[in-house]
C-alpha cells in the first residue's frame, strides 16, 4: 500500500475519529491518567508530597503485605467463598430454566420468570437491609423456625452460617438473570428435533437428556469459562455490607481488606500493593478465560 492511499483512508475516516474523540478522552483521562499511581505500591505515601514525590521503599510494601497477619486468611477466604459461589451457583439457573421449560401454562411461566429476576435489579444495600432484617436473631425466618419447633439460628453471627448466607443470597440474587440467558438458548432449539424424537418413541425425560441438555451445553460451557476471571471476586459489596465483628475472621476478603488497610490503617502503599497483587492474578485469569472462550466457542469480545 502506498503512502498516498493510506492518507486518503485516514482522510476519509476523519469524521469517525472526531466521533470517538469525546468518549476516548473520558476513558483515557479517568482510567489511564491515574494508572501511574500504582507506583504507590513501591512507595511510602506522604500526603504533603503527593504520590510521585513520596519516597521509594523498594519491595517493602509487598514484604509487609505477605507477612501481614490478615492477608493470607483473606486470600483463602476470597478463593473459597468465590469458588463456593461459582460451583453451587453455576447449575442453579440451568436447572431452573430446564424446569421452567417444562411448564405448560404460559402465564405461570411468564410470572414466575419475572418475579425470579427481581432481586437481580436490587442493590446489595437494599438486599442487605432485607437480609439483615429477615435473618436477624429475632427476625422473620427465625420466628418461622421457632413456630415449627426448631431453635433459632444465628445466621449472620456464626461464621459457618454466614458463609452459607453469602453463597445462598448471592445465588438468590443472580439466578433469575442467568435463567433468562438459558431460556433464550432453549427457545433457540429446533422444535422439529422434539417431534422427531417423539416419533422415535423418546419420552419427556429422554428428550430432555438428548436434545435440551446438549442444546444449552455450549452456552453453559461459555458461562463457565468466562467465570474463570471472577474467582478472586468473592463479592465485595455483599460482604462489605453484611460483614460484622463476629464473623470477620472468616469473611474478610482481599477487597474488604484493601478498604480497611486504606481507611483504617491509612497504609496507602500496602493497600496499593495488595490491590495490584489481586489485579495481576485476575488479569491473567480473565485473559485465559477469553482465550479459552475464543478457542472453544464462537464467542468474541472484540
Amino acid at each position: 500500500m502506498t503512502g498516498g492511499k493510506f492518507w486518503k483512508r485516514i482522510k476519509r475516516s476523519r469524521q469517525l475519529h472526531w466521533i470517538i474523540l469525546l468518549p476516548m478522552a473520558f476513558i483515557v483521562f479517568f482510567n489511564f491518567v491515574p494508572m501511574p499511581g500504582i507506583a504507590l505500591a513501591w512507595k511510602r505515601y506522604i500526603a504533603t508530597k503527593g504520590i510521585y514525590g513520596s519516597p521509594s521503599v523498594g519491595w517493602d510494601n509487598f514484604k509487609a503485605l505477605f507477612s501481614y497477619p490478615m492477608f493470607w486468611p483473606a486470600f483463602w477466604n476470597t478463593l473459597s467463598i468465590a469458588c463456593l459461589k461459582l460451583a453451587i451457583g453455576f447449575p442453579v439457573p440451568i436447572l431452573t430454566a430446564l424446569l421452567l421449560n417444562e411448564v405448560g401454562s404460559k402465564a405461570f411461566k411468564k410470572t414466575a420468570q419475572t418475579l425470579m429476576y427481581l432481586p437481580y435489579f436490587l442493590s446489595w444495600v437494599v438486599l442487605g437491609g432485607i437480609i439483615m432484617s429477615l435473618f436477624s436473631l429475632d427476625g422473620g425466618i427465625n420466628s418461622l423456625l421457632q413456630a415449627v419447633g426448631f431453635p433459632p439460628v444465628f445466621w449472620l453471627g456464626k461464621a459457618g452460617w454466614f458463609i452459607f448466607m453469602l453463597v445462598f443470597t448471592e445465588i438468590w440474587k443472580n439466578f433469575g438473570y442467568g435463567t433468562i440467558i438459558y431460556l433464550a438458548a432453549l427457545t433457540g432449539i429446533d422444535k422439529n428435533l422434539y417431534e422427531a424424537a417423539a416419533i422415535d418413541g423418546a419420552g419427556r425425560w429422554k428428550q430432555t437428556l438428548h436434545i435440551t441438555v446438549p442444546g444449552v451445553l455450549p452456552i453453559a460451557a461459555l458461562m463457565g469459562i468466562l467465570n474463570l476471571g471472577t474467582v478472586l471476586n468473592a463479592g465485595f459489596e455483599q460482604i462489605f455490607i453484611l460483614n460484622n465483628a463476629l464473623v470477620a475472621e472468616r469473611a474478610t476478603i482481599i477487597d474488604t481488606l484493601v478498604y480497611d488497610v486504606t481507611f483504617a490503617d491509612r497504609n496507602y502503599g500496602m493497600a496499593t500493593a495488595m490491590n495490584l497483587f489481586k489485579s495481576v492474578i485476575s488479569f491473567a485469569l480473565i485473559l485465559s478465560g477469553w482465550f479459552l472462550a475464543n478457542r472453544y466457542s464462537d464467542y468474541r469480545v472484540f
Binding site: 489511564f32 491515574p34 499511581g37 476471571g229 486504606t262 472484540f302
Partner: peptide
C-alpha cells in the same frame, strides 16, 4: 485501550 480498561484499573487508592 478499551480492552485494557475492561480488565485492569488503577485500584482503590490511586483512583
Amino acid at each position: 485501550l478499551c480492552l485494557i480498561v475492561m480488565v485492569f484499573n488503577a485500584g482503590l487508592v490511586p483512583n
